[in-house]
Design a protein around this nucleic acid. Structure first.
Lengths: 124, 124
DNA sequence: AACTTTATTCGACAATACTCGTACTGGCGT
DNA sequence: ACGCCAGTACGAGTATTGTCGAATAAAGTT
């Protein structure tokens, strides 16, 4: 992957848009995290990020969730405000990633539970 | 610990009252568990059992929670139905313990998070 | 049998959370 | 400038959850 030496975006490893407002590490609360993960849809969002995002951030269209946009906003916001994900604005898109380092530091083992989660199939 | 050979209650290591209705191991759902632990009071109940109960079961008076009894019933029931605790009737008391084996088997690391939980002090 | 103790059930109310339509904003392309 | 597009904000309706008093049940005691 060749890139121009002139690229204005490659001077440092951290040339990212600043994150949307989120709780700091010290503000993370286990109850709140648990509450955020009590919803199967949100659990699946975090799991998908953990298992399938190769260290890239993803806009919510990437998840392929069949829900109205206002519902998605609601859930992504819940995850961000609980401190599970970090969101950055890239042009039109608002991309998300799991706050792996922070969560591993504060709640070691938590993300492993999410990775190992196996949703129960509802009878149809 | 000497005991009578005639004891009708000591023929096996398991002479306990049978547990109240609870989900089986295969029915435990992470979402539901998370939901049950999203409440600080319930989180503190499970934590106290994990840290302070020396493999004994405890009635809810043991916890020293300053709430009406009907509220306590509500929360203990929520914990039991989520599969976090097992409850047995001992005479007048209904004693609880954490389902450590089941939870460790299904969600390894979960109980460590609860043990390590440090509640945030509300400003008074 | 009457009383005490532990805890449940029921019902009402309040508070919180989920769902989603509609209208809007902010960045981008032409 | 105009429209398009990802996503937000607001608000309403619904559902779920928490809180707790009052009445009840079940077990033990005397």
């Amino acid at each position: 992957m060749k890139k121009s030496a002139l690229s204005i975006e490659s001077t440092s490893p951290e040339n990212l848009p600043s994150p949307l407002p989120e709780p700091g590490i010290e503000e993370l609360q286990l109850e709140t995290i648990m509450g955020a993960l009590a919803d199967p849809l949100r659990l699946s969002i975090v799991q998908k990020l953990l298992l399938e995002s190769e260290s890239y951030d993803h806009a919510c269209s990437w998840f392929g969730i069949d829900r109205p946009k206002s519902s998605l906003t609601h859930h992504f916001k819940a995850l961000r405000e609980a401190g599970l994900i970090r969101q950055r604005q890239y042009g039109l898109e608002r991309r998300s990633r799991v706050r792996t380092e922070d969560l591993d530091a504060r709640f070691p083992g938590l993300l492993d539970l999410v990775k190992a989660w196996r949703p129960v199939k509802e009878s149809g």
